[in-house]
Design a protein around this nucleic acid. Structure first.
Lengths: 392, 392
DNA sequence: ACTGGCACTCTGTAGAATCGAGTGCCAGTA
DNA sequence: TACTGGCACTCGATTCTACAGAGTGCCAGT
């Protein structure tokens, strides 16, 4: 708790207007900042090391290449830039990107085409939650051309709305649970002997009476009915529900457009390991969760603790309904990614998705969200462009 | 050699667009076959062009490298091999691979480790169908180190076992349909005004009466009850069900281990396009379906019509329960893939998966499968090794 | 405090030389 | 006739050199 708070605070300090303090993370002077910005934007665009000459021509840098060189040397010394080799241009480090997104990035704007895509998507999408989430992940990936991740609302605090036992095979029934957030869980219950539909109905009624209104985690034992078959069925169902809860992911994840990562890196091995990460849904969820919990909207390189993703950056935006956590959307790309656009896209899609979920589920009523410390809701540091330019 | 000729004939049937004219293709004599086999196996192992010297040392080829060279030249002329460039070894063509799997491949055997993995997996897996399918795709991918695809039973012929309306938000209900094969479909129904739980219950009862026992596609209209609210609710639900059926994929697909494809090709662009294909579940399903329908268990290169997969091979095995189609499992890898192992793995996993599904659903009763021309069930041509060796 | 200029370093490319794997062909042999 | 050993040849891969170009660091000059 304290840790997270301090993290957040220290981050905030580095924002304009924040306390100057003893902050090791340094305010670069305006010129250095302008140079860094030029390097980052150029490198994001071209993926080529950037030389002093290019930078000297960049708008906002009105000095000669020689001066730029000495400033770049200083920036390298301070860890914002690196040279792949002597006599190549320079490349931003993770620290450089970090400074860029925190202080330099102008609030990204989506192109009209993308904006339109998002608009149309949310106008037209309707129907089922899972499908919506899945299609949203595709949308986000298309709009940004990075891999997108959409995490649905966690339903570990949702309560049971309905429980039902449905006979499937002669010795198999299906227990179907509908939760208050619209999620449906199901699991087979295997039986010793054939169960009549009356028995199933009786069991369903009892389950309904016992469980509706409680979270799935609460499963008070049934008192014996005296009827052996019924007691047995109820006991088995209870076990099935327990397993359901035990194994089930508390939230759904959808990954859109992972193939776009293939072209993002040159080393095949990198591609492979990043894709392998994306296959592990649990990891993906906790990755996004971690980043959000730290109050960040961007994690660059090794800032999240997952080594295989060291050459990736993650952009996250929360999804909230009525001010409460209802999941997250994220983007995964190379560290050299277009942060302004990615942030803008994640932000708007996250917001619209929240609205959409709210619409469907009916704001504020009967809609149980994860109990928890409402999101930090850190304001993205956006309007900071004049830091780098202006006064000079 | 008449035997080989007959094999060829049967192959022609299964391979429409193939040989121009009447059977330019080939009974290869025993020695050519042995050489082709040596090239294929060597190339599968090393991914390097194979020279005459290596082949001459292969077991079953008891001639000098010079003779091998002339035979290889002939095989190249006939289209079984190619040279990447003069003075490199040779590589099998798709046609070469095809001959190999049809006539030369000895029945593949899994390693003990893999066999054990499969064994343990099916001993231990239980619970829910979707989860089982998903985990099966992972298993198959791990066992073979290719990307795996598992297609679940199609439930377009399943009948409705239960329909229920559950209130979620003030203006939202969820219609939950349980099908006879254990699948659960759901969709939101949006309401004009708040619906009481009595109303929902009444509607559920009517839905149940009307729809249970019929396939989802059949939705007879409801006769008016006189109660406006109820009629309205039923009408809306009917629309929701229609949309549910319209958009829903008739079967579920799970792709396991797509990241393994990254290392399978050297060209990044190839990786990207293959992954992009795998993201389109509909395409994946119809790919497997096509291959199976043509009575094949392997499709190499362009044999399936999907150009982006021209450098891939697909291995498919049907999943059947009680003799009826219950889906398929498949493997996707480079054309230079280890066909014997892949076939063995797909075969055994498909079979075990079928048994598993059968176990859970209760063989033969209440279990509605896709009505259709029970699978061709073509026997894999396996025990043909002596064709290539033996008599000499 | 900045700038122009210069020497230097390093990559990438192009060309030449070399190596070697592998082929095709041919003459010789069982 | 069917195979083999041998030989000349081809062509990719590797190495080396040379060189151009991009970029830097530094310094002297304004």
């Amino acid at each position: 708790m304290a840790r997270a708070g301090e993290r957040t605070a220290s981050r905030k300090v580095s924002h304009p207007g924040g306390a100057a303090g003893e902050d090791t993370a340094p305010a670069l002077d305006a010129r250095k900042a302008a140079i860094l910005e030029a390097v980052v934007t150029e490198y994001i665009g071209t993926a080529q090391p950037v030389g002093s000459h290019h930078v000297a021509q960049a708008p906002g840098v009105d000095v000669s290449s020689a001066t730029v060189r000495s400033e770049m040397a200083a920036l390298e010394h301070e860890g914002y830039l690196v040279q792949p080799h002597t006599s190549a241009g320079r490349i931003p480090t993770d620290k450089g990107y970090r400074f860029f997104v925190d202080h330099l990035a102008t609030p990204g704007v989506l192109g009209p085409a993308q904006r339109h895509m998002v608009q149309r998507f949310f106008d037209q999408v309707h129907g089922e939650l899972e499908e919506t989430l899945e299609r949203t992940s595709r949308l986000l990936s298309e709009v940004t051309s990075y891999a997108a991740v959409v995490v649905g609302p966690s339903h570990d605090a949702a309560t049971v709305r309905s429980v039902q036992l449905v006979g499937i095979g002669p010795r198999t029934a299906l227990v179907v649970v509908v939760l208050s957030d619209g999620a449906v869980e199901k699991r087979f219950v295997e039986l010793d002997e054939e169960a009549s539909s009356e028995l199933l109905a009786a069991a369903s009624a009892r389950l309904q009476a016992h469980l509706v209104g409680r979270p799935l985690g609460e499963r008070p034992p049934f008192e014996p009915t005296g009827e052996r078959a019924l007691d047995d069925l109820l006991a088995r169902t209870r076990v099935a529900l327990a397993e359901l809860e035990r194994r089930g992911e508390p939230e759904q994840v959808f990954v859109g457009g992972p193939s776009r990562l293939a072209s993002a890196f040159d080393a095949v091995e990198t591609v492979r390991s990043v894709l392998a990460i994306l296959e592990q849904q649990l990891v993906v969820v906790s990755l996004l969760r971690d980043v959000l919990d730290r109050g960040l909207s961007v994690a660059i390189g090794t800032e999240h603790g997952y080594e295989p993703l060291a050459s990736c950056a993650v952009v996250v935006a929360p999804v909230s309904v009525d001010g409460r956590d209802a999941g997250a959307v994220g983007l995964l790309g190379p560290t050299r990614m277009d942060y302004p656009r990615a942030l803008a896209a994640a932000h708007v899609v996250g917001e619209r998705l929240g609205e959409r979920i709210g619409d469907v589920l009916g704001l504020g009523s009967g809609w149980h969200l994860r109990a928890g410390e409402g999101l930090p809701r850190r304001r993205r540091p956006a309007r900071t462009g004049e830091n780098a330019r202006g006064d000079e």
